[in-house]
Amino acid sequence: MPEILFSAREGLWETYRAPLMRALEEVGIAARIVTETDAPGTVDYIIYAPNEQLRDFTPFTRCRAVLSLWAGVERIVTDRTLTQNLCRMVDPGLEEGMVEWVTGHVLRHHLGIDRHLRRRAPIWDPVVPPLARERRVAVLGLGALGRACALALAGLRFRVAGWARTERRIAGIDCHHGADGLRAVLETAEIVVLLLPLTAETENLMDAERLGWLPEGAVLINPGRGALLDEAALIAALDAGRLAHATLDVFRTEPLPQGHPFWTHPGVTVTPHIAAETRPGTAARVIAENIRRGEAGEPFLHLVDRARGY
């Protein structure tokens, strides 16, 4: 019977207890699950989200895999004490939530909804938006979440271009890669969605130079990682009128500090990291399947490439 350590922020276990037990039963795994241990050498799997109680993985000598509850692993992938297999969360519920949030905000900017919501005077201003097939949208990052969002937007007939650091092929999406591909995508994008993982190569990807590649009046939407953006460069581009708006769900410091200029800037919409959340019901099935695979000697799903950082 494998021993599983559930290590996450306080209170999270209560939301995962029942879904995880059901999911393990569904795949035929009987396990002992603990939320703390004095015998790390007996633990076979760690279900993990970053927390202060577990920061050193060295004592877990029998552990076959650390199973992240988060899609992003940048906070743990460089931990030198973590020598075990590391699997990121690829959760169908998280994917659905991201698609809904991204689609909603792309449509909001495409249709010019803010102009009507913020009107304070009785001005009849019949500005008719273009059709979706006339609007160019770029999705930067074509992993599971980026691919799903790109396909959903293409399904609404937006002209979708995608960019990734390595070559991708997705039917219906104009895919680009590499430095030249990034510039080609940004130079024609009216709406840009950032869904890249955070690595040394993607930090501050959208700096002053690359923001300057965007057409005047473009909109930036970031539900990926806060550090993908150079914040000062973004505010400068908004103040100069180069960018029309930025809708941001993720930030370098969370919660976003009260005095941060994003809160009061007229060109910024802040949402409190709600674009996509790991859903216990669906995430538990992903974790249970990986434990089943570990017990059966099969390859783990969603194994992190340490060199690439995701």
Rank of each mutant, 00 (worst) to 15 (best):
V160K: 08
A154T: 01
G181Y: 07
V160Y: 11
L198V: 14
R183A: 11
V160F: 08
R168P: 05
V193A: 04
D174T: 08
H176R: 11
A161C: 13
C175R: 08
T188M: 02
T202N: 10
L211G: 04
I191C: 06
I191Y: 04
L194Q: 01
W163F: 01
R168F: 00
D180N: 07
I170T: 00
G181E: 00
V193K: 09
V192S: 02
L211F: 11
E209R: 15
G181W: 12
W163L: 04
G172V: 12
I173P: 01
T202P: 00
L205Q: 04
L195C: 11
L156N: 00
L186Y: 05
R157P: 09
T166P: 09
L186F: 04
G172I: 10
L195K: 07
E187A: 14
L205H: 09
E187G: 00
L211P: 00
L196S: 00
E209T: 15
A184S: 14
L198D: 05
R169S: 15
E203Q: 13
A154R: 13
V192I: 11
L182D: 03
L196T: 11
E209F: 02
V185Y: 03
T199P: 04
T202Q: 04
E187C: 13
R159F: 04
V193I: 06
G212N: 04
I191V: 12
N204Q: 14
E190T: 08
R159T: 07
A179Y: 03
V192Y: 07
A189R: 10
V192E: 08
G212P: 03
N204L: 13
E187T: 13
I170K: 05
G162K: 05
L186S: 07
R183V: 13
A171V: 15
L156A: 02
V193M: 09
R165I: 00
C175K: 11
L186H: 02
R157D: 15
E190D: 02
L156Q: 09
R159Y: 05
E190Q: 14
E209G: 09
C175D: 00
T188A: 14
D174M: 01
E190Y: 07
G181V: 11
R165F: 10
L194V: 13
L198Q: 10
T188E: 13
G155P: 01
A184G: 03
V160R: 06
R183N: 02
D180P: 07
A164S: 15
I173D: 02
A208E: 13
T202Y: 00
I191S: 07
R210E: 03
H177M: 12
R157T: 15
A184Q: 08
L198S: 11
D174V: 05
L156F: 14
V160I: 01
E201V: 10
A161S: 15
A208T: 10
L186Q: 01
R183W: 06
R169W: 07
W213P: 04
D174W: 08
E203V: 15
V193H: 03
V192N: 05
G162Q: 01
G162M: 01
E203S: 09
A164H: 14
A161Y: 09
T188L: 12
L205P: 08
R169A: 14
H176K: 12
D180W: 01
W163M: 11
F158N: 00
L186K: 02
C175L: 10
R169C: 13
E190A: 12
V185C: 07
E209H: 08
E201Q: 14
R210Y: 05
L156R: 14
